[in-house]
Simulated assay, not measured.
Amino acid sequence: MLEVRGIDAFYGEVQVLRDLSLSVNAGEVLCMLGRNGAGKTTTLKAIMGLVRPRSGAVVLDGTDLSRLPAHEVPRHGVAYVPQGRRLFAELTVAENLEIGLMARHKDRDTLDRTLALFPVLKERMKQRSGTLSGGEQQMLAMARALCLEPKVLLLDEPTEGLMPSMIATIRDSVSQLRDQGVAVILVEQRVDAVLPVADRVAFVENGRVRDTVDVETLRGDLSLVHKYVGVGH
């Protein structure tokens, strides 16, 4: 479905991604694990066209996204929830969601299906998003992305700084999206946030995917976690 084929990416003259390749299928959750600076976030930005690969390709259902301007990528069915959420703080919950709907010309039915995943947002529609709790802001960021009805959802550390109950809500929503056939690429730092929801795990080091394993293999042997992330995770 989505294939990242041997991309090289730079910030200025500093190379961050080196011949990085990965793939994710419909109805699958692929987690990217690795230390800070390994290239995980840059991979998501490269998929979205926010960082332009100098070589390689990002292909979704036969379309080379890496040849498109960044604003065209969401229209092909890729949604991105960046680290830090990037909500429009002065706009209401409803207004933030409306922006998501406009990106792919979706309607009220799409909004209703999205809000079914995050019922608490129904009670906050007129509230400014900047006044929500951290967990509610993360739900809104995900809901806004889902208003695109994406084929692929990119999540950059969605559980960072959240209380356990909110982490469980986010995790449950990811599982439901997988069951609905959405492909999810999840960037995380903590293996305990990954094991309950991922199907496969890609370990990233120095801008490359070094190993990819299914989650059941990882449950039985955490040596790769210790190698690429650290003993404390």
Rank of each mutant, 00 (worst) to 15 (best):
M1V: 06
L2H: 01
I7A: 00
D8V: 03
F10G: 10
F10H: 14
F10V: 09
F10D: 11
G12W: 03
V14P: 00
V14M: 12
Q15C: 11
L17R: 00
R18A: 12
S23R: 12
V24D: 09
N25V: 03
N25E: 15
E28L: 07
V29Q: 01
L30T: 01
R35F: 10
G39H: 02
T41A: 07
T43E: 11
L44K: 02
G49Q: 04
V51R: 02
V51E: 13
R52L: 11
R52Q: 14
P53M: 04
P53N: 01
R54L: 13
S55F: 01
S55D: 13
G56R: 01
A57S: 15
D64G: 02
D64Y: 03
L65M: 09
R67L: 14
L68Y: 05
P69C: 06
P69M: 05
P69I: 07
H71W: 15
E72H: 12
V73W: 00
V78E: 05
V78Q: 01
A79V: 02
R86K: 15
F88D: 05
F88H: 07
T92S: 15
V93G: 00
N96I: 01
L97C: 06
L97A: 06
E98D: 15
I99G: 06
I99F: 08
I99W: 08
L101G: 11
M102D: 14
M102R: 15
H105C: 13
H105T: 10
K106N: 15
D107N: 15
D109V: 11
T110N: 12
D112M: 05
T114W: 04
A116L: 10
A116C: 04
A116I: 00
L117M: 13
P119K: 11
P119L: 08
P119W: 12
V120W: 00
L121Q: 04
E123F: 00
Q127D: 04
Q127M: 08
T131D: 12
L132D: 05
G135T: 06
Q137V: 03
Q137S: 08
Q138W: 13
M139W: 11
M139V: 05
M139Y: 08
M139A: 14
L140Q: 05
M142E: 03
C147R: 01
C147D: 07
L148C: 02
P150L: 09
V152M: 10
D156E: 07
P158G: 06
P158D: 07
L162W: 07
M166T: 00
A168W: 05
T169N: 11
R171G: 03
R171T: 13
S173E: 09
S175P: 00
S175Q: 12
Q176G: 00
D179T: 11
D179E: 15
G181H: 06
G181E: 13
A183F: 01
A183T: 02
V184P: 02
I185S: 03
I185W: 04
V187Y: 02
V187S: 02
E188Y: 01
E188T: 03
Q189C: 08
V191D: 11
V191R: 01
V191T: 08
A193E: 15
V197Y: 09
R200Y: 14
V201E: 03
V204N: 08
V204L: 07
E205S: 12
E205K: 02
V209N: 02
R219H: 07
S223I: 01
L224M: 06
K227H: 14
H233N: 13
H233M: 11
